[in-house]
């Protein structure tokens, strides 16, 4: 009796979790179902009526999404997205790992102030910097000295506007403050004994970083990597501002937005397009999943 009541109470959280899982998956299910319904079906009734709908299911939407090529074909757009996403993920991680190690374990003058300055950059919304950045990409930065009447070129005119380079450069720059902050918090928690032992064995900073810190911080690097990957994969604003005018550099999100068409007349393609868009992030997430759950210090320090 008491046992039964106890078992019932103990199962409550599980049921609550299932309820939440169900509620949160519901919109995704709706998109999945609607993606398989023809336009007239989507336009006239809700997705939950699919079972009684004589219009049935079709792969036509997916076929159109994959084959449409008015702006850029799907394969080119996906390559562009990779060309943005991979540098925009790897470069900030590489720089931030070095910076975070220095902030955490190298004692240099002005360390605290510099770290606070870096972290406070988190508070700057990237939207305010978009147009100045675009101007920088278009025409470089030039400083005219007032009295000497001499112009110094600080950044040359690289003509980056409309290229995927401009997009990943922006992503990489804006990812750095958070990456440094996150990695610093993790690295500063590593046991100091480890570093002392390494130094006694004659290791310099680079050896410590390369042989000790990097292998130990794979979980946090992977965690940040997937956040950054997802964020850049799904980004529309930056890609649209920096490269939206060049049909050869369009990423998937822009291409999908264009699919909807004038006056939204092809909005019925969007559910199918959404699933094409999430396919790669899902594959990456499931593929790298075991790196996220691996124990933080597994096998590194004994006792």
């Amino acid at each position: 009796m008491v046992n039964a009541a106890y078992r019932f109470l103990r199962s409550l959280p599980t049921w609550a979790l299932w309820a939440i899982v169900f509620l949160w998956s519901l919109p995704t299910l709706g998109i999945l179902v609607n993606g398989l319904r023809p336009r007239d079906g989507q336009r006239s009734t809700g997705w939950w009526t699919v079972l009684g709908d004589e219009r049935g299911l079709t792969l036509e939407n997916y076929r159109t999404v994959v084959e449409a090529s008015s702006t850029t074909n799907l394969f080119d757009a996906m390559l562009n997205t990779f060309a943005v996403t991979i540098p925009a993920t790897v470069i900030p991680i590489a720089i931030a790992a070095f910076a975070a190690y220095a902030f955490a374990w190298i004692d240099f003058p002005g360390r605290k102030g510099l770290f606070i300055a870096t972290v406070s950059l988190l508070a700057i919304p990237l939207q305010v910097a978009l147009i100045p950045l675009l101007q920088l990409y278009v025409s470089g930065a030039h400083l005219t000295l007032p009295i000497l009447n001499k112009t110094i070129t600080l950044i040359p005119d690289l003509d980056l506007a409309g290229t995927t380079t401009a997009v990943w450069l922006t992503h990489a720059g804006f990812a750095l403050p958070f990456a440094i902050f996150l990695l610093h918090n993790y690295l500063s928690q590593l046991p100091g004994d480890l570093f002392e032992a390494a130094r006694i064995d004659g290791a310099d900073h680079f050896t410590i970083f390369w042989r000790l810190v990097l292998p130990l911080s794979v979980p946090v690097l992977a965690a940040f990597g997937i956040f950054q990957f997802l964020w850049t994969w799904n980004d529309f604003l930056i890609a649209n501002t920096m490269a939206g005018s060049n049909p050869d550099a369009l990423v998937m999100t822009i291409r999908i937005a264009n699919l909807a068409g004038d006056f939204g007349r092809n909005e019925h393609l969007l559910p199918a397009a959404a699933f094409v868009q999430v396919a790669v992030p899902l594959a990456v997430f499931f593929g790298l999943q075991r790196h996220f759950v691996r124990g933080l210090l597994a096998g590194s320090v004994k006792g």
């Binding site: 147009i131 675009l134 990409y137 278009v138 939206g244 005018s245 049909p247 937005a257």
Partner: peptide, 22 residues
């Protein structure tokens, strides 16, 4: 080359201010 732009009304402003209009 013609580029159709889903967000044309906002983008044309950005492109002009950024200095690279079509």
């Amino acid at each position: 080359t013609y580029t159709g732009d889903a967000d044309w009304e906002a983008n044309i402003n950005t492109q002009i201010e950024g200095g690279n209009p079509p």
